[in-house]
Every structure is written in C-alpha cells, then in structure tokens.
Simulated assay, not measured.
Amino acid sequence: VVGLAFLFFSTQYRVFNAMMMGDEAALTLGIPLKLYWYLYIAIVAVITAVLVASCGIIGFVGLITPHIARSLVGTNYRKLFPVATLLGSLFVVWADVLARILVKNAELPIGIFTALVGAPFFIYIVTKNRRKVV
C-alpha cells in the first residue's frame, strides 16, 4: 500500500506545484481541486491507517522532515517529495536505533524519542512563524 501510494504521489508533483500557487492559479490551469483534495485525503487516510495498524503511533515525523527537506531543496515538489520521503525514512531508522541503544537493558518506545526531538522543533516553528506575523 505504501509503495503504491509513493509511486502515485511521485507522479503528482505538477498538481502539487499548481496548488502551491493558490486556488485561482490551479483552477486557471485546469486542475479540478476538489477532486484532487478528496483523492489525496482518501489515499493519505489509507496510508495512515495501514501504518498505524502495523507500526503504532510515531508522532512528529511528518512535521519535522518536510520542513527540513523544504529548506534543503526548495518548494518544487518534483525534488521535495523524494527528499522528504528519504529524510523521513532516515529519521525513523535512526530514531529507532537510538531508542534501542540509549537506555541500557531496556528499549525506549520510538514515539517517545521522536517526541523528544519533534516537540522542540515544533516550538521553534511556531515561534519563528509568530515573529514573522508580529
């Protein structure tokens, strides 16, 4: 399911780039926004259900890695999607490795480790955006 969704979303960079320009621009380019929004939400809901059912809840990964990827490669989804996917995968693997070796003779749940990394990152993003608004 995840592999098929990855292949599907890899081909959707033109639609995502048009959506980033705004609703009017996307509609002008002939993109049926409602159709794509519902389609993307349905696919992401299925992916989320499958992953949570098999792996459990691992928070903050979807918050951290896309922001880092966007700062590395910009907003073009042709480059952003594969880089964000790779960074998310690497983050989860290394979080799992560190969660297994940090506490001797015990295994720290990976969700706790991602929260320890993700919560400060989330606070940084919120405070950075507030400074821009004020």
Rank of each mutant, 00 (worst) to 15 (best):
L108Y: 01
V2E: 04
S10M: 14
N129Q: 15
I41P: 00
T48V: 14
G111V: 12
K34I: 14
V126G: 07
V133S: 11
P82F: 00
I57S: 13
G62S: 08
A25F: 12
V126S: 06
G22N: 01
L98S: 03
A95E: 02
D23L: 05
F91N: 13
K104F: 11
F91R: 12
R78D: 04
G56L: 06
L51S: 12
N129G: 00
L80N: 05
V61W: 00
L27I: 01
L86M: 14
G3Q: 12
T28Q: 15
P82G: 01
H67I: 05
F16G: 06
L108I: 08
P32Y: 12
E24V: 08
T114E: 08
V117C: 15
L33G: 02
A69N: 08
K79W: 11
L27Y: 03
G111W: 07
R78A: 14
F121D: 02
R14E: 14
A53P: 00
N129E: 15
P120L: 09
G74A: 09
L35K: 15
V73E: 11
V83E: 10
V103Q: 05
W37I: 12
L33A: 04
S10I: 09
F16N: 10
F16C: 02
V83S: 11
L35G: 03
F121R: 09
V15C: 02
L98T: 03
N76C: 03
Q12C: 15
V117D: 01
I125L: 15
F91V: 07
W37N: 13
T65W: 01
